[in-house]
Simulated assay, not measured.
Amino acid sequence: MKKLKRSGRLVDMTYYLIQHPHQLVSLSYFSERYQSAKSSISEDLTIVKEIFESQGFGSLLTIAGASGGVKYVPAVSIDEGTELVESLCTKLEDKERLLPGGYLYMMDILGNPHLMNNIGRLFASVYADQNIDTVMTVAMKGIPLAYSIGSYLDVPVSIVRRDHRVTEGSMVSINYVSGSAKRIQTMSLARRSLQEGANVLIVDDFMKAGGTSRGMMDLLTEFKANVMGIGVLVEAEDVEERLVDDYISIARLEKVNEKEKQVQAVPGNFLKKLKEVDG
């Protein structure tokens, strides 16, 4: 790369850090990249850090020592988080989403790259300090959200399937009880997709009774893995019995009336968790 003026370095450095979240970058790397002294790089990073933190983009951590450097940790401010959550609730309340049986059409939300990118950043903000190794979800609808979160946490995604695929090699399978239908179902995960003892964040696009999340938790015991959290995009209205207790949801359906074509959505418990992390 040709030698840049400070303004150019700041732009390129900021872009690089945003594209490499949770990765430790040495001052030597930036010094060689921009053909500049480490003292100048340190001054540049101080400016970037101030902007990141003042604008609520996240934090820039400095690790001292010969093997140290800087690490960008994405975050979301309370104001931005509130705006994103309320925007999702508004989208969910569109009566045209109602399907027969009281189900909601959500593929336009899950298939919106910009929206999923923002939601992924929300979850990454509250799980940034949990030492997550892998994000896990069940195929198919939770995949876009899982990859977005994985991108911001800089970790891989493990996909649980309900059918066996020979291209994934040997599988670990369990039976679980579907929380809503109370049916016995099967879920499987390729042995090579998860390391034993990994710290895993479970992600689900929609939770009713929580049977799918409970199944993934049980599946993780077969890998001797640790459940570090459960992130849910939307949780259903009041359910008599939840099979999981500790989870974070972005939005909650408070009322779904198919006859009156009415959907009422409110923020889930995410904003409360974000305030705890921010405070």
Score class of each variant (00 low, 15 high):
residue 69 G to I: 05
residue 73 V to H: 03
residue 129 D to T: 10
residue 193 S to R: 09
residue 20 H to Q: 14
residue 206 F to Q: 06
residue 29 Y to L: 15
residue 151 S to V: 11
residue 139 A to N: 08
residue 272 K to W: 14
residue 51 I to M: 13
residue 241 E to W: 11
residue 51 I to P: 10
residue 24 L to G: 11
residue 106 M to T: 04
residue 114 H to P: 05
residue 205 D to Q: 06
residue 106 M to H: 09
residue 104 L to G: 05
residue 11 V to D: 13
residue 164 H to A: 13
residue 22 H to V: 10
residue 141 K to I: 12
residue 254 E to K: 11
residue 156 P to W: 04
residue 178 S to F: 06
residue 252 R to S: 05
residue 4 L to N: 14
residue 20 H to Y: 10
residue 30 F to W: 12
residue 65 G to T: 10
residue 67 S to Y: 06
residue 209 A to W: 03
residue 257 N to R: 03
residue 42 S to C: 11
residue 74 P to F: 04
residue 114 H to Q: 13
residue 19 Q to A: 14
residue 253 L to A: 03
residue 156 P to R: 04
residue 135 V to I: 05
residue 261 K to V: 00
residue 157 V to S: 02
residue 228 M to L: 08
residue 205 D to T: 10
residue 194 L to V: 04
residue 175 N to Q: 14
residue 97 R to I: 00
residue 73 V to A: 04
residue 143 I to S: 03
residue 134 T to S: 04
residue 87 S to N: 12
residue 147 Y to E: 09
residue 4 L to E: 12
residue 186 T to R: 13
residue 183 R to P: 09
residue 223 F to V: 07
residue 33 R to A: 07
residue 1 M to F: 14
residue 155 V to G: 01
residue 65 G to Y: 07
residue 192 R to W: 06
residue 240 E to T: 15
residue 19 Q to P: 11
residue 57 F to I: 04
residue 247 Y to P: 00
residue 3 K to Y: 15
residue 237 E to I: 05
residue 17 L to N: 07
residue 213 S to K: 02
residue 28 S to H: 14
residue 271 L to M: 11
residue 228 M to V: 11
residue 30 F to L: 15
residue 63 I to G: 08
residue 31 S to F: 08
residue 121 R to S: 06
residue 54 S to C: 14
residue 200 V to A: 02
residue 26 S to R: 06
residue 223 F to L: 07
residue 186 T to A: 08
residue 205 D to A: 10
residue 186 T to P: 07
residue 165 R to Y: 13
residue 228 M to Q: 09
residue 41 I to V: 10
residue 227 V to K: 09
residue 174 I to Q: 03
residue 159 I to T: 11
residue 139 A to S: 09
residue 131 N to T: 07
residue 71 K to G: 02
residue 160 V to Q: 01
residue 251 A to L: 04
residue 133 D to L: 02
residue 118 N to I: 15
residue 75 A to H: 05
residue 158 S to V: 03
residue 272 K to T: 07
residue 94 D to R: 07
residue 1 M to H: 15
residue 275 K to D: 10
residue 11 V to P: 13
residue 183 R to A: 13
residue 132 I to M: 01
residue 261 K to W: 00
residue 232 V to W: 00
residue 144 P to N: 08
residue 271 L to Y: 05
residue 27 L to Q: 12
residue 244 V to Q: 02
residue 258 E to H: 02
residue 160 V to Y: 00
residue 220 L to H: 04
residue 180 S to A: 07
residue 77 S to N: 07
residue 108 D to M: 11
residue 6 R to G: 12
residue 167 T to I: 11
residue 119 I to H: 02
residue 126 V to D: 00
residue 34 Y to K: 13
residue 263 V to Y: 00
residue 163 D to E: 12
residue 199 N to F: 01
residue 147 Y to L: 11
residue 149 I to S: 02
residue 232 V to I: 10
residue 252 R to M: 04
residue 109 I to E: 06
residue 88 L to G: 01
residue 231 G to W: 00
residue 205 D to F: 04
residue 153 L to Q: 02
residue 146 A to W: 00
residue 189 L to Y: 01
residue 175 N to H: 14
residue 9 R to I: 11
residue 62 T to M: 12
residue 266 V to E: 05
